[in-house]
Design a protein around this nucleic acid. Structure first.
Lengths: 246, 246
DNA sequence: TGCGCAATAAATGTCAGACATTTAAATGTA
DNA sequence: TACATTTAAATGTCTGACATTTATTGCGCA
């Protein structure tokens, strides 16, 4: 992993990129505090000795990373953003989705990663699960049993179920990390159009997981998750094989 | 690429943000393919019926997310970037670092998340560890035993050890997810200035983990990791308590 | 006095046009 | 053919103007 050299300014890049980096450093190193206002665009332009347009482009770059938020009007300006979990989720999902869609990650690799990560929170989830999370899981299971449910809805419900499982661990950092993994994989999972038979099987796994979590039996939940992973992998391989043969 | 939708415009946001979103959607949904060139700034300005500056601000937002890369000169332009793992790591680390530094995440929460995630890859690591990964782990262990090693170097070596453990799982998606978690937590971990005594203990845990991975005994590795998590947590609590009492 | 409302000022958002710079392709020449 | 030159197309930057938003200020009026 190469990093930009601290000295000998990277003259290769745009001015706007350099300015963005300078402000980013100031934020990360705490030289400007969360909630504080940056100098106005005109002032920044003067400080960096560039035009206002260049400063604006730099600020837009920072805004794209949710580092700052801007407000119009008198006493408006660019404020250092307190990165919310919501925003972090969004970034994580965008990055993960792109990575998966652009790098030809195999279904096996993605699936393996997803279930490995998910398995990491079952012990915590078993320990801390609230009535709320259990209710969500039960509701999604019920939903998934409804006949006539579209494939899209089934997949969305699947995501919601696993999301509840992750959230049950009660650790926002874990939830944040896993949001990307689980949500980004939805398109890949949608590849597998679930037949009535496989829906039934998946429902069974979900029920076993929910039961185990409710009874706080982490190893049982992990085992069920492991089996679900294997089953999903098998389904995926079948789809890939069928496509190759076609 | 298609024209802006006339209906359901999120009129609350900037034009540049709207245009960035429109192009982002086109990329994510595959309407423009990786490596392909976007229309020139002038053409985009015409298509979206805005000025070139506005288009440029939109493009800078996308560039900040590594979605596009621009090239000057004739037949230059904005090209849809193939997001590399390196870039994704970088984004992940930036986001995670900011999230941790700005949201007053407790040491307990961060530590718990980190070790839970890491535990997720021990089974795979035990199964697939290569001689290369084992050598790296051994080398870092040896390094950590050197007397006179600075705290910073010890922490860096700690990160490298755990990184090798994660990479040993042989799943790039897992590596990507965990890079953020592990690296972003380095500042928090640095909080704990390791005494000679605790270094020795940590070295012991690392050796146990490496041994277990080498012998492909995943449960042993998990147990050691679990203990290391508990020990780190204890150290962290001690530091926090000492600070509070001061 | 106190309340509502308009004027004001400061900031971002947008536009238009110009020029500088870079770069690959086309062109011309020995 | 090989090499140098020109050219065109694109991004990068600057300037100045105007539009829009919004907190504050100050004024008029009951």
């Amino acid at each position: 992993m190469e990093k930009p050299q601290p000295e000998t300014l990277p003259e290769r890049t745009d001015l706007s990129a350099q300015i963005a980096q300078a402000i980013r450093d100031a934020i990360v190193e705490g030289r400007v505090v969360t909630g504080e206002r940056l100098p106005s665009e005109a002032e920044l332009a003067e400080q960096f000795e560039v035009s206002r347009s260049t400063v604006r482009e730099a600020l837009k770059r920072l805004a794209a990373q949710s580092l700052i938020r801007t407000q119009r009007g008198a006493f408006g300006g660019a404020f250092v953003n307190r990165l919310s979990y919501e925003e972090a989720y969004g970034q994580q999902i965008t990055t993960s989705t792109l990575l998966l869609s652009m790098n030809a990650v195999s279904f096996e690799t993605a699936c393996e990663a997803r279930y490995a990560l998910e398995r990491a929170c079952t012990p915590l989830a078993s320990q801390r699960r609230s009535a709320d999370h259990l209710a969500t899981m039960r509701a999604e299971i019920h939903r998934q049993g409804q006949p006539g449910l579209s494939d899209e809805s089934f997949c969305a419900s699947d995501v919601a179920f696993h999301r509840a499982l992750v959230d049950a661990a009660g650790n926002p950092v874990l939830s944040y990390q896993l949001a990307g993994a689980v949500e980004a994989m939805q398109p890949l999972m949608n590849m597998i159009t679930f037949t009535a038979r496989s829906r039934e099987a998946i429902l069974g796994f979900h029920t076993r997981i929910a039961d185990a979590i409710e009874r706080q039996e982490a190893p049982v939940a992990e085992a069920a998750l492991e089996e679900l992973a294997g089953y999903t992998l098998e389904l995926g391989r079948g789809v890939v094989a069928a496509r190759a043969a076609r």
